[in-house]
Design a protein around this nucleic acid. Structure first.
Lengths: 204, 204
DNA sequence: GTCTATAGAAGGATAGAC
DNA sequence: GTCTATCCTTCTATAGAC
C-alpha cells in the first residue's frame, strides 16, 4: 500500500512540527534522527521530506515561528507607552513566565539549540532574540530615567532578568507544589527587589 | 610508523580532555564525533579509546570533574558559618561569577548536556548539582531567619540567582566593555536588591 | 500522501601492525 | 602509544512504486 487510509497532509505537517519540537527539546537537535521523528508522527522517514527540505530547516522554522509568536503575543498585550515602569515590568514578568510555561519545549529549544543553527539561520533568529531582549531593556531604561528604578546597568539587568525567568523551565514540571499564579508572585517579588534596589546607580 | 616521536600518554590524556571540553561546549555533545576530537588532539580516532572506554564516559568525566572542582573550590574559601548573611551571599556571587568566567566551557556543558548523560550518570551528576544549589539555599534561609533577607521562597530564589549568574556565560566574551570586577559589582547590586527586598515575605 | 528500498556519507568502536 | 584498516550501525536524503 502506498497512501494510508485517511492520510492527510495538513495534519501530518502539523504533527511533524509538534513531534520535532518535543523530541528536539527532550534529546537535543543533534541527538534526534529523522527516523525518530517519523516514528513519532507515524510515517516513514522519507515522507517527512514532503514537509521540510531538510532537518536544519525544521529546526529553524520551529525557532522562527516561536520567536514570531513571542513577539506577537507581547505586542498584543503590551502596556501603553506612558504607564508606570513598575507596572510595565510586572506585566513583562507575568507575560514571560506565562508564555514560557505554556511552551516549555519551544523556549527550551530557542535557548539551547542556537549553536545548531546554520550561520545564516542563526543571524535571523539572533535578531529576533535581541528584539525581545530590547523590549525589556527599554522598560528598564525608562524606569531608571524616571527615577523609579535604581539599576547599575540596564543591559546586564535585562540579561539577568530574562535568564532568571527562563530558568523556570529547568525545574517546572506542572505537577509540583506551586501553581502558575504562585510562581508569578514569587518571581515578581524578586524582580521588584532587583529593579528597585538593584544598585547604587553609580553608572547607567 | 606506529608510535609518534615524542608521543606521551599523560599529555594526550590531558589534551583529549581539553579538546573534548572545547568541542562539546561549542557544538554540543551529540554533534561532535570522536574523529573530530581525535583530529583536534592530533591523533587518530582509534587512539582515543586508550583513554576513555567510550564517548559517554568522556562526557560524564568532564562533568563530574567539573562539579568536584566547583564544590572543592567553594569549600576552600567558604565563609565562616557565623558570618553576616549579606557577606555570605556577596561571597557566593563573586565566587560563582569568577569560577564561571574561568571555565566557561565546563559550566556551559554542565548546564546544557545533562540530557545527554546516561540515566545512571545523570543521577550522579544531578546529586552534585543539587549539593551546589543547596549551598546557596542555606545562605538564603539563614538570611531569612535572621531577618536580613525578605525572600518569599528561598528554594526558587536559589534557582533564580544561579540561573541569572550562570547566564553571564551566554554573553560574556572577555573582550567587551566590562571587566570581571565590573561585572561582579553589577551582579552584586542586583542580587542584593533581590534578597533584601525580594518579597513581601508572605510565605517562606 | 505515503510507502519501500537504497544510495552515499559518517558515526562509534575494535583488531592488529609497528 | 599510535597508526591503519575495517566492521557494523546509523544517519540524511532521494527514487520510484502504489
Amino acid at each position: 500500500m502506498a497512501r494510508k487510509t485517511g492520510s492527510n497532509g495538513k495534519k501530518t505537517a502539523r504533527e511533524l512540527r509538534i513531534a520535532a519540537t518535543r523530541l528536539f527539546a527532550k534529546y537535543g537537535y543533534a541527538a534526534v534522527s529523522m527516523r525518530q521523528i517519523a516514528s513519532e508522527v507515524g510515517v516513514q522517514a522519507g515522507a517527512l521530506y514532503l514537509y521540510t527540505p531538510d532537518k536544519q530547516t525544521l529546526l529553524y522554522q520551529i525557532m522562527d515561528r516561536h520567536m514570531d509568536d513571542l513577539l506577537e503575543a507581547w505586542r498584543a498585550q503590551a502596556p501603553s507607552a506612558d504607564g508606570d515602569p513598575i507596572m510595565k515590568i510586572e506585566q513583562f514578568v507575568r507575560f514571560h513566565i506565562r508564555f514560557h510555561l505554556n511552551r516549555g519545549d519551544e523556549i527550551f529549544i530557542a535557548y539551547m539549540e542556537l549553536r545548531n543553527l546554520s550561520e545564516d539561520n542563526f543571524k535571523l533568529i539572533e535578531r529576533k532574540r535581541r528584539e525581545y531582549e530590547r523590549l525589556l531593556g527599554v522598560i528598564l531604561e525608562e524606569g531608571n530615567i524616571s527615577g523609579r528604578f535604581a539599576l547599575c546597568d540596564t543591559k546586564l539587568s535585562s540579561y539577568a532578568i530574562i535568564a532568571m525567568l527562563t530558568g523556570v523551565s529547568t525545574w517546572y514540571k506542572g505537577d509540583g507544589r506551586l501553581d502558575l499564579a504562585k510562581i508569578e508572585e514569587i518571581y515578581l517579588c524578586m524582580v521588584r527587589g532587583l529593579v528597585l534596589n538593584g544598585g547604587s546607580k553609580t553608572q547607567s
